[in-house]
């Protein structure tokens, strides 16, 4: 068991983290490059950046949302899933010996509260995707699987920290937590989790996309042999 745990927290974690970071950097650089290319091609280059910034903030902050259940569940889930991995003292002590930099940490009480809120939020979102017809029709199996994976990461982490409440042996639960977390990291750039870096760029992408090259319609007509075709 110890060998498996050492593998999960050592080589597997490094591979997963590297894949995650490289993948995210690729997505961001690629998107920014495409934004630049589109903007260079557009005839009207005047971008309302203030409006774009306001729209971006409006989407990132939950205050303007009109669906209270999803908003509360979403905020609870995101707070736990983002803050606990980065600031929980049990996580920080794993990497700080290798990178001895000052880093704020959260204690078990805060971490537990955030983890439980995240679990409740995740469960609500899974149920929403499965039980509400409009959401179910728009969901793919991957959408639900990603939520279940994050649910597994969070639940196993909570149980690993609370062996008394764990349904499995503490070391087994720790291994499950590490493997699930590594898988989530690895899949981040390959699934919709990639929205963690791309969602803030969406308003800018859309604004640039609305600024067409003036000649694109003519080019399409030419390519289709329709240049002199009447309406």
């Amino acid at each position: 068991m110890d060998a498996w745990i050492a593998l999960a927290r050592g080589p597997l974690f490094r591979v997963a983290l590297a894949a995650c970071l490289l993948g995210l950097v690729y997505h961001v650089v690629n998107t920014l490059w495409m934004i630049r290319q589109s903007h260079q091609r557009s005839t009207d280059k005047d971008l309302p950046l203030g409006t774009v910034a306001a729209t971006t903030l409006g989407h990132l902050l939950p205050f303007r949302q009109r669906r209270p259940i999803q908003t509360i569940a979403g905020v609870a889930f995101h707070a736990g899933i983002l803050l606990v991995p980065v600031f929980y003292v049990g996580h920080v002590t794993l990497w700080q010996p290798s990178f001895p930099i000052p880093w704020p940490t959260m204690g078990p009480a805060v971490s537990d509260a955030l983890s439980l809120a995240a679990l409740a939020g995740l469960a609500a979102l899974v149920l929403w995707r499965l039980l509400v017809r409009t959401s179910r029709e728009l969901s793919t199996a991957a959408d639900v699987a990603v939520l279940l994976l994050l649910l597994a990461v969070t639940a196993s982490g909570y149980w690993a920290a609370h062996p008394a409440a764990s349904p499995a042996a503490p070391r087994t639960m720790l291994l499950v937590h590490m493997l699930a977390a590594n898988l989530a990291l690895f899949l981040t750039p390959l699934t919709k989790i990639v929205h963690c870096v791309l969602a803030p760029l969406n308003p800018l992408v859309s604004e640039v996309a609305w600024h067409f090259p003036a000649e694109s319609g003519a080019h399409v007509a030419l390519a289709l042999g329709k240049e002199n075709e009447p309406v």
């Binding site: 729209t55 971006t56 989407h59 929205h195 969602a199 969406n202 308003p203 859309s206 996309a209 609305w210």
Partner: peptide, 8 residues
């Protein structure tokens, strides 16, 4: 998410 349905 900020996806522009109008554009799509």
């Amino acid at each position: 998410m900020g996806i522009d349905h109008g554009l799509i």
